[in-house]
Amino acid sequence: MKHALIRLVVLSAVLLGVPTARADSIRVGAAVSLKEAFGEIATLYKADTGETVEFVFGSSGQVAAQIKSGAPMDAFVSAAKKQFDDLVKDGLLDVETRHLVAGNELVLIVPAAAVKGGAVGGFDDLKKDAVAKIAVGEPKTVPAGQYAAQTLKALKLDDAVKGKIVFGANVRQVLAYVERGEVQAGIVYRTDAKESGDKVTIVATADAATHEAIIYPAAVLSKTEHGDAAGHFLDYLMSEKAVAVMRAKGFSIPTDPAPAAPAKPATP
């Protein structure tokens, strides 16, 4: 009996103690809208440098929350300024390594099957009764939802659509709701709609004046031991090869890739 108990304890300790693989690769937390583009770029990067990059994808707010709670990551690529600035404020990002890796557009999509009926041809049609549910990202943590809320507000549609909103925990969940036809419309990035192929149709593009500029800031985490390796990857994102992938996926490339970074605090 006593032996059995000891064995159980040893077995549990062994099971818990099995180290989870974390080899020499760097780990980048990134907005999920970058998933396919970054996957391709990582393959190119591996071929060029032999270095492996792992990604943790999620809504920018979720990834930022993970970084705040100490998840082991080396760099962060956000889909909006807000989540990025939050981490800067907490001193978790090395602002010296800040890059602006991409830009995007906000679009209104409908399930491809629904286009024939044509209930939704533009943002104003979201008011119609035929539109029962509209999927958007949860605006606090999902940048796409934050931009969508700004656009709906600017178009004075926020009251009319209030009871119709369904939140996605990230932009890809919003896309999935539209792909499956569970909602009549959704607001995502142009690149997400493109990635979805013929399952969804873009019916309108949000006027850039109705929301904050959609930009993807990136930086190395202040506390990482792989700072140099992570910095190399962020530099690689600005390389010709990587930029070609980003453009092919539908991202825009910011014209001034290195806007004046906030002045470095004087080190004593």
């Binding site: 979720q62 949860e138 943590t141 209030k162 009871g163 909103i165 369904v166 939140f167 996605g168 925990a169």
Partner: peptide, 17 residues
């Protein structure tokens, strides 16, 4: 997750998110 229309368990999840 429908704003203004959540059950108790979903509301905990929403607030956590």
């Amino acid at each position: 997750w429908q704003p203004g229309r959540v059950t108790l368990p979903i509301s905990v999840y929403a607030q956590f998110e």
